[in-house]
């Protein structure tokens, strides 16, 4: 194995006869945000728990920050930061107290811990709430505190297990910004699990889609989407009588696709870049376009292509028609 921040080979975890993680291979590059995308129960958290030394693999091996997760578990724990699902934070303690405790657990000297804690609280916008008990925090504040706790020792590798689950859109976007800063500003390698398509699309340079404990697709979001097929252009023309003429023009750009009444749809062989040519061609024959919409494949399409099912909760979270990312 090489010296990548995160690498796993044939990772398996069984609970009795149930196989939660089934021969997972991973190779995360330094400074990368790697997204682990899948529905509930797909094996994301179990994989993270193995990589963070909280669970022993049933088979296979993994190295994090250059250390074996079984043989050198203590060294792995020293090198990583982890924000697990549900932000398990003692509600009776204050943000400051939790940071002090976390600093002690990580072996940070008291003076350094105080300045580091203050710096982190400021960065996550919790300075004013630092001496309030966590039970008074909102869900977003708890997540941000959890992130600060995970960062107290400046980890080289950061694991975020569904960091925005249950957060409102504003808190979610704020947390994304923080992850971007950590990655781009500080060069922290991040492994992020999520069931939100948009989150994976927005943050991850590469993603692995996991289903039933197996990785079913892996790559850059744009590449994965491109593999699913060409984007679909939906066109609505102004005059009803011009539909046949418009269909003939569109046929020159790709295969017709099913669409609602009054709408023409075509799979663009030339990709999104040929959209301008379509507009020109329609204009050349005197057709007035009422509306035009480009639907690029989403990660949900990638998931559906790989598994035959749609990702749970996809409709509300990542069903973008603009092909973000």
């Amino acid at each position: 194995m090489s010296n990548l921040p995160i690498e796993a080979s044939g990772l398996v975890r069984r609970f009795g006869t149930f196989v939660a993680v089934d021969h997972v291979d991973l190779a995360v590059e330094p400074g990368e945000v790697f997204g682990f995308l899948g529905p509930n129960g797909a094996g994301k958290s179990t994989t993270v728990r193995m990589l963070t030394t909280l669970l022993t693999p049933s088979e296979g091996s993994a190295r994090v920050a250059g250390f074996d997760v079984v043989r050198d578990a203590a060294k792995v724990r020293r090198a990583i930061g982890v924000a697990l699902q549900d932000a398990a934070i003692d509600p009776l303690m204050t943000g400051n107290e939790l940071l002090r405790l976390q600093a002690t657990l990580q072996g940070i000297p008291r003076a350094a811990a105080a300045s580091r804690g203050a710096e982190l609280l400021e960065r996550v916008g919790l300075t004013a709430a630092a001496d309030k008990r966590v039970k008074a925090y909102s869900g977003g504040m708890r997540r941000r505190l959890d992130l600060a706790l995970a960062l107290i020792h400046q980890p080289r590798v950061l694991f975020l297990d569904e960091p925005t689950t249950g957060l409102d859109p504003t808190s979610r976007i704020a947390l994304w910004e923080e992850v971007r800063y950590l990655n781009r500003g500080l060069g922290t390698t991040v492994l992020l699990t999520t069931q939100y398509l948009e989150e994976a699309d927005q943050l991850a340079g590469r993603i692995a889609i996991i289903d039933g404990g197996r990785i079913v697709r892996e790559g850059r979001p744009a590449e994965l989407k491109a593999q699913v097929g060409s984007p679909t252009l939906r066109v609505e023309v102004e005059a009803n009588g011009e539909q046949d003429k418009a269909a003939a023009v569109l046929a020159g750009f790709g295969e017709a696709r099913p669409a609602a009444d009054g709408v023409l749809a075509v799979g663009l062989d030339g990709g999104a870049a040929s959209m301008a040519d379509v507009v020109r061609a329609l204009d050349d024959v005197g057709i007035t376009v009422a509306s035009m919409e480009l639907h690029t494949p989403t990660l949900d399409d990638v998931f559906a292509d790989a598994t035959g099912r749609r990702l749970e909760g996809a409709a509300g979270d990542g069903d973008g028609d603009d092909g973000a990312g």
Partner: peptide, 26 residues
């Protein structure tokens, strides 16, 4: 690679040896 090394150095300089007694007391 330089950035990675710097990150590693920051990390290492921040951490002391994690000792038993301070954790017990906390």
């Amino acid at each position: 690679a330089v950035g990675l090394e710097r990150g590693r150095a920051d990390h290492d300089s921040l951490l002391g040896e994690t000792r038993t007694w301070p954790v017990v007391v906390q």
